[in-house]
Design a protein around this nucleic acid. Structure first.
Length: 492
RNA sequence: GCGCCCGUAGCUCAGUGGAUAGAGCACUGGCCUCCGGAGCCAGGUGCGUAGGUUCGAUUCCUAUCGGGCGUACCA
């Protein structure tokens, strides 16, 4: 407090921007701004419009965000939906904060699960032709897979009954993959998510990138052989145990492919690489970072956001989600049931660290109670006011904004002024959920203003000032909703 | 056993080492014949437990209890 007093004694008591200076608490120095500081933000919002909130903070630095990357052996489920909502909103935020963002989906179109997928397809193909063959124990039991095979049969009939099984599986798997990937793209597009790059794991096998990666690690002496397999010394980089890169049967593991993939990311010039993974993959983080360190990259430039898993409830019972068992609620069903807007808002609303209990019954029954409607309602209300009250908005330079003096008006303007900083804060901390809070607070301040101040009044000067205020509010609300991937309706 | 995440109001969750810890849901009572009542206003002794670091801890550290997830030559 003494130091604060010294500073205060050496500051002018007031200035154009500061109305007073006060010492408080254990030694805080509170600067009270002149109320008039807020007014210039309103013409700025109207002028920048869609760009309001954006900044060049990121200096166009290249960032890649890889998210969802679900196996193309099935359809997208709730966990993928959370990753999609989170990843896409994060990308929007980073772009708004001035980063050069690439959205990427890694297609696991190689490896063991593809083998299983092929065997499952083959079994279904033969079964649908009346053959009594067993279904592979580790296979994919989902109903969607039967439909996939039915579609294939509609095209090619029994042509692949007599051919070499390896050729048959190859044909089935390639055809099914195309269909599955197309379906995934469509589901994501329906959810408002568009990718810049779809990266094939198989391409890393085909190009020799995986082999080359292993060769380099061997040269650096980070590899040893044990029991016929090749092991990466990940314990050198803080991992709990070493990891297999190439199995005794000569086939590289998923980890080997992932090292090649992440090397490829950095070789493409990304300054920062962000992965969004389910928490069940957390054991993979240390070794992935370690492997990048082995190649001389700063492991801090590989950032992994772990999302806790989504638990689904129906009728008070937890629904076990598993592709293998074929029981899960799909993304498209979710969109159908609760809508894209509510689903995206709901997923982003929570911190990735928090477990997400998604009660389907509740989401269906009480969807009108979802906070997203509260925010959208504020937007629709403003549109309605503007439509009812103004042929066109007054010219901003002719409006006397100083007439906005009510506390609810000033609170609203101050909140609007926060948006650029909110976006930067949420972007650099990689926390899109902050924006849902901001959206809610902004909507709340608007509703509060609405109840204490009428916009469409006889006092022309005040009316015009308030019209500018609500228009600026509308723009701000809309911009935030769009960052979240949620629509801003004119009517509801 | 070891590792990671979580534990905050009845419930679901926010909370950048700082001031009197906040929202939604639920509950109770109010809101002008007026721009959309999907709204507004009012109502609250809650940081799992015990230590430590600090002028100051919900936040950092240690231990412990509880929940979740990992700990494959699966991905």
């Amino acid at each position: 407090r003494q130091i604060a007093q010294i500073i205060k004694d050496n500051m002018p008591d007031s200035s154009d921007w500061v109305s007073k200076l006060e010492i408080a608490g254990p030694g805080f120095l509170n600067f009270y701004l002149q109320p008039s500081w807020v007014y210039p933000v309103l013409p700025l919002v109207l002028e920048q419009d869609e760009k309001y909130g954006c900044s060049d903070y990121g200096q166009n630095s290249k960032i890649q965000v890889e998210f969802v990357s679900a196996n193309p052996t099935g359809v997208l489920h709730m966990g993928n939906a959370r990753g999609a909502a989170l990843g896409d909103s994060l990308c929007n935020l980073l772009q708004a904060a001035g980063y050069d963002v690439t959205r990427e989906y890694y297609i696991n179109d190689a490896g063991n699960q593809i083998e299983n997928f092929a065997k499952s397809l083959e079994a279904r193909y033969l079964q649908l032709h009346g053959q009594d063959v067993p279904f592979p124990e580790e296979g994919y039991h989902g109903e969607d897979l039967i439909d996939t095979v039915k579609n294939i049969i509609a095209e090619v009939g029994d042509k692949y009954l007599q051919v070499d099984p390896a050729l048959r599986r190859e044909f089935l798997v390639q055809t099914a993959l195309q269909e599955k990937i197309a379906a995934i793209k469509k589901d994501l597009a329906d959810f408002g998510v568009e990718y810049d790059v779809w990266f094939s794991e198989q391409s890393l096998h085909d190009s020799g990138a995986i082999q080359q990666t292993i060769d380099v690690l061997r040269e650096k002496d980070y590899i040893y052989e044990k029991e016929g397999a090749l092991w990466f010394k990940s314990t050198l980089f803080g991992d709990e145990k070493d990891e297999v890169l190439v199995r005794a049967n000569g086939i590289p593991t998923y980890f080997a492919a992932d090292i090649a993939y992440h090397r490829n990311k950095f070789e493409r010039g990304f300054k920062k690489v962000i992965n969004i993974w389910g928490a069940d993959h957390h054991g993979h983080v240390a070794r992935m970072k370690g492997s990048m360190q082995a190649f001389g990259y700063n492991p801090d430039n590989l950032q992994v956001i772990l999302m806790q898993l989504v638990r689904l409830f129906r009728g008070g019972e937890i629904v076990r989600m598993s592709k293998r068992s074929g029981q899960y609620v799909t993304l498209s069903e979710l969109i159908e049931e609760v809508g894209k807007d509510a689903a995206r808002y709901f997923f982003v609303m929570r911190s990735p660290d928090s477990h997400l209990d998604f009660d389907l019954d509740l989401a269906k029954e009480e969807s009108s109670e979802n906070p997203v409607y509260y925010v959208q309602y504020a937007h629709a209300r403003i549109c309605s006011i503007i439509k009812a009250g103004a042929e066109k908005l007054p010219k901003i330079e002719e409006v006397n904004l100083q007439r906005l003096e009510e506390e609810s008006e000033l609170d609203l303007i101050r909140k609007i002024a926060d948006l650029p900083d909110e976006i930067i804060g949420a972007a650099i901390n990689e926390e899109p959920h902050r924006l849902t809070r901001y959206a809610h607070e902004l909507a709340s301040l608007f509703h509060s203003f609405y109840n204490s101040c009428r916009v469409l009044i006889d006092d022309e000067e005040l009316k015009n000032a308030r019209l500018v205020l609500v228009e600026a509010t509308r723009i701000t609300l809309r911009n935030v909703l769009h960052l979240l991937g949620v629509s801003a309706p004119d009517r509801m």
